[in-house]
Structures are given as structure tokens and as C-alpha cells.
């Protein structure tokens, strides 16, 4: 069992914990924002592929 003194750290608990908290927020932000950038690009790429496929099939329909 951890004592509350370990969390309070004298009078410096507020400083130490806010630093660790902000760092965690920054890192989690990076994970999600950059992953989202990738997923958005992936979705765009998929849509382009679909459109290209449709165009190809419609062109071949006309020719047959």
C-alpha cells in the first residue's frame, strides 16, 4: 500500500504531477492525431481506387 506522502511529495506534488500529466497528454495527442492523419489519407486513397475502377468498368461496358 502506497502512502499519500508518496503522492504529495512535500509541497512539490502539484508541480511534479502536472508535468507528468501534461507529458502524457502530449504523447497521447501525438498518437491519435498522427494515426488519424494516416487513416484520412487511407480513406481518400480507397475512394480514388473505387472511382477509378468504376470508370474502367463503364469504359469497357461501352466498348462491348
Amino acid at each position: 500500500m502506497m502512502s499519500t506522502a508518496a503522492f504529495q511529495m512535500g509541497k512539490y506534488g502539484i508541480y511534479v504531477w502536472s508535468c507528468y500529466g501534461l507529458t502524457m497528454v502530449g504523447l497521447v495527442f501525438l498518437i491519435f492525431v498522427v494515426r488519424r492523419q494516416w487513416q484520412i489519407e487511407l480513406r481518400h486513397a480507397k475512394r480514388r481506387m473505387q472511382i477509378m475502377e468504376q470508370q474502367q468498368t463503364s469504359v469497357s461496358d461501352v466498348h462491348t
Partner: peptide, 17 residues
């Protein structure tokens, strides 16, 4: 490194459309 992997993939998809 892990963040760079995702960011690089996003960049590649944008450039190689």
C-alpha cells in the same frame, strides 16, 4: 519512431495518390 511510421505513411499516401 512509432509516430514517424504513421506520419510517413500518411505522407506517402498523399504523395503517391
Amino acid at each position: 519512431g512509432a509516430i514517424l511510421c504513421d506520419g510517413l505513411c500518411a505522407q506517402i499516401l498523399r504523395r503517391e495518390r
